[in-house]
Design a binder for these strands. Structure first.
Lengths: 341, 341
DNA sequence: CTGTTAGCGCTTTCAG
DNA sequence: CTGAAAGCGCTAACAG
């Protein structure tokens, strides 16, 4: 069986991969020329490029992304680590926006669903194994230690929803304290005194900051620190909040960690016949699409995705992500007043 | 500058890539041995494998996914082509489920957001360029012609939400006609006579089938074909439906293409003071999480994602996706009766 | 079971 | 501007 004399039996008559070499041979140029033709900015005569393109077209040639990446020791893949987008409306918006951004940059997105620190670590390793051009972590459970470990690697790292102090990573995070404080001040201004902060059971970075914002605004108004309820963002979140709402002392305002929780609280209140915002004010965070639905018209603190995407896009393009040398971009968080508070 | 004598100036002291060769050299085995150690099922002595693993661990070696894929002429990437998951709750559930499935299979998921035929074609090409192990198309705009073109390529293709007649691709699709017919019969049984089918402006495959189901069930009941309204799934969908609802003759039942539209209809009705289900019955399709929210309690036709994922997982693992030789898996679509009809 | 040896398909100096 | 040649890091026969 010498490979030179008889053609190898192809398993199917279709899908024979056309390579650089064949195009080069057919066009009568070197393989380097073909490579250059497909490399933006490479020094090559226009005629040669045209010839190569025509030949490639005719032969059905497409450069192998794999080979190119191996050779360049860097792929055009971007890894996106995200939590559970089935339950989080915000995450899905973020994923959607990242997908668009990556496409604009000519990158392709590898999405990893991660839950817990171990999974984040594994996904990061995988991103490295693919020689990813960047990693974007949108998972709330990202820890400081983990982010430190990642920085030992030569891949641009973006942390969404968490501020990492120091290091090379870019952090994009809402101005959580001020956002939550704004909501708090607003409900206090409308007469609320017994405020409750409603957070998720799983405490993420943003949760802590928002709670601080609430506490700060309450202190400024001469009120004691808020009570805190915790609920899972699952199917029974309404039930959990209903249980809370029926226990005395009843609050007159619920500052919720996010819109999902706020909507659940709204439904719990409705089922209990509690008037919102008359007897109970409710605010959310994020401004997911559902928040503006007629049935809810939630007062909330928007997290404009575009504002977060822009610096990430710049960072991944090698441009400075923000005005200063700062690695932490804070997105302003003004309150959006609708019906519920 | 001869490369042999002095070590190359590394740009940073971190992130020097450790390769197979270094592990082999350090462990005193051949590179093939190292490769085998990391290849499940390869013939290699346990001791050798252990030695390799220890050395790899110590040196911080991780196999390059890129090199492996290039060598195998097949990557462990799965491409997922999806529409706009920012606006479609169902799509996001599907993406989420596919991500889990791919992880179970040890594959990694490349997500492409596609809108329109051209984008689908481009994404498919890219999947090919990455030598993807499979392509899953969840975009409604997938056309028959396009799917034909894809079949000329040697990549397992899955079409979600569309039945492709013939060919090698696997189609997973809800039993749209029966699902819509069941909803239709139900509202007729509760007294509805002036039914309207509410679809999206962009007519996808499923839309056509559901409309047929509605028409069929109406014909069986001796009713004329349904009126058809079309609305975009955008922010103003409630406004669009409200406009429709205020024009005579007013319907007494809305069979909606999906839950998003049904919820919008519900809100439009509420804002118009129309009693649901008393004066107007409304049904949806999909059973997205929002459908079961207290505020809506939508009567709908569930699309159980798991039932769709199972055959896809089998197909991508090389197992037969269904009981028969059939390439089209129909997911049963029984009606789930809640409040709105 | 293990090592040797060709590649996988493309990029990138380095000469010319 | 163009071509030759040496890799990028790993896999897969093929001998042994």
């Amino acid at each position: 069986m010498n490979a030179g004399s008889k053609p190898p039996a192809r398993r199917s008559r279709r899908a024979k991969t056309v390579t650089l070499r064949e195009v080069a041979a057919d066009a009568g140029v070197s393989i380097a020329a073909v490579s250059r033709a497909f490399t933006p900015g490479a020094r090559i005569a226009d005629e040669t490029r045209d010839l190569v393109f025509r030949t490639a077209e005719r032969l059905g040639y497409r450069p192998s992304r794999l080979a190119r990446s191996l050779s360049r020791t860097r792929s055009d893949l971007v890894a996106l680590l995200v939590g559970d987008m089935a339950t989080s409306s915000f995450d899905r918006l973020f994923v959607d926006a990242v997908l668009d951004m990556a496409a604009r940059l000519g990158r392709h997105t590898l999405v990893f669903k991660v839950a817990g620190e171990a999974a984040i670590g594994a996904a990061f390793d995988m991103a490295q194994d693919y020689r990813a051009a960047g990693v974007i972590v949108a998972a709330g459970t990202m820890t400081e230690a983990l982010s430190r470990r990642f920085e030992a690697v030569d891949i641009p790292l973006v942390l969404a929803g968490r501020a990492a102090n120091g290091g090379q990573a870019l952090s994009i995070v809402s101005d959580n304290r001020n956002g939550a404080a704004a909501a708090t001040r607003h409900v206090i201004a409308t007469g609320a005194r017994r405020l409750v902060y409603v957070g998720r059971r799983q405490r993420v970075f943003c949760d802590g900051e928002r709670l601080e914002g609430v506490a700060k605004a309450m202190a400024e108004a001469g009120l004691p620190p808020p009570s805190v309820w915790r609920a899972d963002e699952n199917a029974d979140v309404v039930g959990q909040l209903r249980a809370h709402l029926t226990a005395a002392p009843t609050p007159d305002a619920l500052i919720c960690f996010n819109d999902r929780l706020a909507i659940a609280a709204l439904e719990a209140a409705a089922s209990l016949g509690i008037d919102v915002p008359g007897r109970l004010r409710i605010t959310g965070y994020d401004d997911i699409p559902e928040a503006s639905w007629e049935s809810f018209r939630l007062t909330t603190v928007p997290q404009p995705i575009d504002r977060a995407i822009a610096p990430i896009e710049a960072f991944l393009s090698g441009r400075p992500p923000g005005p200063g040398p700062d690695r932490v971009v804070r997105i302003p968080a003004p309150l959006l007043i609708r019906r519920t508070a």
